[in-house]
Computed example of a mutant assay.
Amino acid sequence: MPYATASDGVRIAYQLQGGGFPLVLLAGQSNSHRWWDSVRGDFDATYRTVTLDYRGTGESDKPDQPYSTEGFAEDVIAVLDELGIERADVYGTSMGGRVAQWVAARHPDRVRSLVLGCTSPGGPHAVERGNDVRRSLVQPGAGAARRALLELMYTPAWLATHPGPYHTVGDPGMPEYARRRHLRASNTHDAWEALPGIAAPTLVLHGTDDIFNPTANAPLLAERIPGARLQLIAGARHAYFEEFRTIASPLVLDFLGGLNEGT
């Protein structure tokens, strides 16, 4: 397993597939690179996809210390540096979209194009999930809470015909302290003031039926980032990129290809 070393000495595991211009794929909270397993092949024919295991997940080190979306973004840069990649397209979903905001805002020379999926700006300007959603995720018994999370990620029709395994509901090998660290990192994210400084062409994607990260966050991002495009996917919940991959992946590829043709 190849590793990059972050500025504080933490080892970050990364994975490469495909060929072509680099495309960084950033997973959601408390998930490793396996978040992308079911759809990564959609991009490998055109791109050299780069994923990583956030600190606290997968094969990366798991220090019991504060994490942040800004820190995760610097870990992304450490991976790009290790690979000698000067510029890449970046596609982040859920917390990965929050991390991607910092990558693009703080390292504009490293990001050619940006896709933000099912994410939010964080902070007081964001639209938070409802208390009913929060309560459903802290039900007594791990089985009930897991089922509630699955129903936030996927439609009933999808769950009825796709028995799993599901790679979007958390890295099963994470220590509990790392889960808490990830949750706090995502909950304390606030990139509102940095968003107008994002110079990369940006596509904002979101499912219309996402209540886990409410859909209302998508137009907030699109209006805050100069020139950003907004695309909503009808009927999709939080894991739109997997359940609606035949719509979502072509949208991303068309956006990136159209903007970057000849560059």
Rank of each mutant, 00 (worst) to 15 (best):
D190N: 15
T168K: 07
H162E: 14
R179P: 02
E193D: 13
H189N: 14
S186Q: 07
R184C: 09
Y177V: 11
D171R: 08
P172M: 08
H189V: 00
R180M: 10
Y166M: 09
R180Y: 12
P201C: 06
G173S: 13
A200M: 08
I198M: 01
R180A: 15
V204A: 07
A185E: 11
R180C: 05
M174K: 06
D190I: 01
P172L: 08
A200K: 05
R179K: 13
I198L: 00
H206S: 08
A185Y: 07
S186V: 00
G197V: 04
N187K: 04
H189R: 03
A194D: 11
A194V: 05
P163N: 13
H162Y: 14
P165M: 12
E193R: 03
A185R: 03
V169Y: 12
L183M: 05
V204H: 02
L205P: 04
V169D: 14
R179C: 12
T188F: 09
P196H: 09
T188P: 04
A194N: 03
G173M: 06
L195Y: 06
G170I: 04
T188N: 12
L203Q: 00
A199K: 01
L183E: 12
T202M: 05
L195M: 08
A191I: 02
H189K: 06
H167N: 11
P196Q: 09
G173Y: 04
Y177T: 11
W192E: 10
G170P: 04
L183W: 02
G164A: 12
I198K: 03
T188H: 09
M174C: 09
M174T: 07
A191R: 02
P163L: 04
A200W: 02
R180F: 08
G197N: 08
E193N: 04
S186K: 05
R181A: 15
E193G: 02
A191L: 00
G164F: 10
V169S: 15
M174L: 10
